[in-house]
Amino acid sequence: MQKPVLFSVGIKTLIGGVRPLIKVANLCRSFDTKKAVADLNFEVRRGEIFALLGPNGAGKTTTIKMILGMLKPDSGSISFDGQPLQFGEVAYKSRIGYVPETCALYETLSGREYLSFIGNLHHLSETDVKEKSDRLLEMLDLGDEADQLIRSYSKGMKQKVLIISALLHDPDLIILDEPFSGLDANTVLIFKEILKSQAARGKTIIFCSHILEVVQKLVDRLMIMKEGKALVSGTPDEIMRQTGHDSLDLTFNRITGSRDTEAVAQDIIDVIGSSKDSDSGNPDSPSDNGTN
């Protein structure tokens, strides 16, 4: 279903105007000799849902970490709400919520303890954190497991905790790196609605995802990166029009110059089926269970 673009833009313009919340200019970052991000420029407006897309190793996570102040840019600048960010500055981090790509959680804490910990780092009151986290855990079907250690959670449960912890302090900028990884279809629907509502409230959302179907329906604008550089940016419709495809999957494939996916798939199938002699696979073969 097509988004009501005019209505949406109208509300957001009323709330936040056109001044970008995040402005990235000439951003560069290398690791050893590899250029992870090279001369990147983009801006994200208040109340906008913006996606960073690209194949693996395109530099999306590095870009996000520089916006978060976790990595220092080699050159270039990042502005937050019109103010240039200095590396080491922490005050603006209280206005950011972040869901990392990996399940980085203290696994020897329970879900409830972890949320309380994050709430405390954001200076939320004890009662506020408790009330909010109890309700959110309950709403996301984690109520019964809230006191179990996170290490006993499934991937989806951990992802829910990460997303709750990113939203708990009602941040102005929400940055999500593969936020739907491991979530069940119903929870994905819930979070999509949450993101839309947050954007309508004037919150800015930047997210990376490889699920392009979701991206196509959710985002206002997107940017496709490869090898640290921006290849193209605009609304999904604008970008799809450029390539003449009606799906973002095919558009992405065309823009990133990937190989013919069907041919690659066929090659892989050929390799899998080409095993000649294998002694690896007889589960019933007796073992001698010999000595050490």
Binding site: M70, V90, P100, A104, Y106
Partner: peptide, 14 residues
């Protein structure tokens, strides 16, 4: 090692 990923994006000064 996990500290960096968990505390890094939070408003905690060094």
């Amino acid at each position: 090692p996990d500290d960096f990923h968990i505390i890094g994006p939070r408003p905690v000064n060094s």
